[in-house]
Simulated assay, not measured.
Amino acid sequence: MVGASFPAWTSPRLPTAGSDPDLTVRFDCPATTHTDGEVAVPAAPLAETLKMLGAESVRVVVEGSRLALRLDQARFALPLLSVVESPASEPPRVSEVDGPAFASALRIVAGTAAKDDPLPLFTGVRVQAVEGELTLTASDRYRMAVARLPLRSPGALDVLVPAALLTEAARQARGVVGLHSGPGRFGLSWAGGLVGTAVLDAGFLSEEAIPSGAVDTTVTLDADALAAAVRRVGVYAEDRRVLTLEVGDTQVRLASARQDTGEAEETLKANVSGGRTSPSFQARYLLDALGAFAGERVVLSIQPGMRACVLRAADLSVGEVALTYYLMPMLTR
C-alpha cells in the first residue's frame, strides 16, 4: 500500500483508504473532526507508528507539509504526498454471507493452505458461490478442507484468493459480508470497511480431484477425546511424528515408541462399521483436522491403501457450516 488518505467527512467517523496495484483497502474509524480536508501520507510508517503507540486515541493535525500524530507526551510527523485519485472502486457485489459463519469456516479452510509454495495454487482459497451456497476450498497437497455455508442472496462466483489476506479481511469484517467479483479482482465489504485484491492466476483446486468412493471402514467418536490421545501418545513418536490408528471392532488404539523416550499406547471406545484397518497419519495434521471438529463427534471415513481419510461432523444442524476435511495417510517408514 503506497499511501493512506483522510478525506473530508462531517460525521463522527473518519474514512481511511489506501491502495497499491494489487490491494485496495477502505475502512471507517471513530473520530471527532474539526476541519474538513483530505491528505495522503506514506502508509508503512503511519501503520507502524499507530501500532507501536498502543494509545486509545490520537490527535491528527495537518502542520504545513506534515501530518502530525500528537499525544500528550509525543509527536510524530509524516510527509504529505500528492493526493492521487481515490483507490479503484470495488468490483460489483455478487452476493452476501453471514460474517461470523464466513470467518469461522475460513479460519479452518485457510489453515490448510500452504504458507509459502512455488505454486500459487496452494497458497490460495478457492471461493465459489453457486446459487444459494458458498464453498471454500484450500489444500497444501497433504490435506484439503472444504466448507459449505448458505448465502444470504443467490450469486455466481469462482475465484482463487490469497489465503492470508482473505483470513485477515474476514477477521476484521462485521455483520453481513458482501462478496464482490470482477475481471481479475475479488472483494469483501461490510459496514464501514472494504478489502479488494487481485486474484491468483493459477489453476483451481477441486474436491472432485480426490477419490473418496472406496471407503471400507467408518469410525465415529468424540473429536476432543481423540485429539487429546494423539497429543499424549505423540510425545513418544519418532521424529516424523507419524502415529498409527489401529481400528478394532469397537475401539481405536493409538501406539508409538521411541528408543530414547519410551513407548505409549491409548485405547478409545468408538462406533466402528466395516473391517479392521490401521492407517497412519502425521500427528500435527491429524490434530489440525480434529481441531476443526472441536466439541463434536467426528466420523472418519477410511479408504484402503494411501487414499485420503475423510472427516465430517457426525451431526450437522440445518444452516450450519458443513465441513469436509481430507487427510492423506503417511508411510510409517
Score class of each variant (00 low, 15 high):
17 A>Y: 08
23 L>D: 06
26 R>P: 01
27 F>R: 05
27 F>P: 04
29 C>G: 12
36 D>K: 10
36 D>L: 03
39 V>P: 08
47 A>I: 10
50 L>P: 06
54 G>Y: 04
57 S>W: 15
58 V>Q: 01
59 R>N: 11
63 E>M: 06
65 S>E: 14
66 R>Y: 00
73 Q>V: 05
74 A>M: 07
78 L>E: 01
81 L>G: 02
84 V>E: 15
87 P>S: 09
87 P>I: 13
90 E>K: 00
91 P>R: 07
96 E>L: 05
106 L>A: 06
110 A>C: 02
111 G>R: 10
112 T>P: 00
114 A>V: 14
118 P>L: 06
119 L>P: 11
119 L>F: 11
125 V>R: 08
129 A>P: 04
133 E>P: 12
133 E>G: 05
134 L>C: 13
137 T>A: 07
137 T>F: 03
137 T>Q: 12
139 S>E: 01
150 P>D: 00
153 S>E: 07
155 G>D: 05
155 G>M: 10
158 D>E: 05
159 V>I: 07
160 L>Q: 04
169 A>Y: 02
175 G>L: 04
177 V>P: 04
179 L>I: 04
183 P>R: 11
183 P>A: 11
184 G>C: 01
185 R>E: 11
187 G>E: 03
187 G>N: 08
187 G>T: 05
189 S>L: 04
189 S>Q: 07
202 A>M: 01
207 E>A: 03
212 S>Y: 07
220 T>V: 15
228 A>I: 12
237 A>Y: 05
240 R>I: 09
242 V>F: 02
243 L>R: 00
247 V>F: 08
248 G>R: 15
249 D>F: 06
251 Q>C: 00
258 R>G: 06
258 R>C: 14
258 R>H: 11
259 Q>D: 12
261 T>N: 00
274 G>E: 02
275 G>N: 09
277 T>W: 10
280 S>A: 15
282 Q>D: 12
283 A>T: 08
292 A>F: 12
294 A>T: 12
297 R>L: 02
298 V>N: 02
299 V>W: 03
299 V>E: 05
299 V>N: 07
304 P>R: 13
306 M>D: 03
311 L>K: 12
327 L>H: 07
328 M>Y: 06
332 T>C: 09
332 T>G: 03
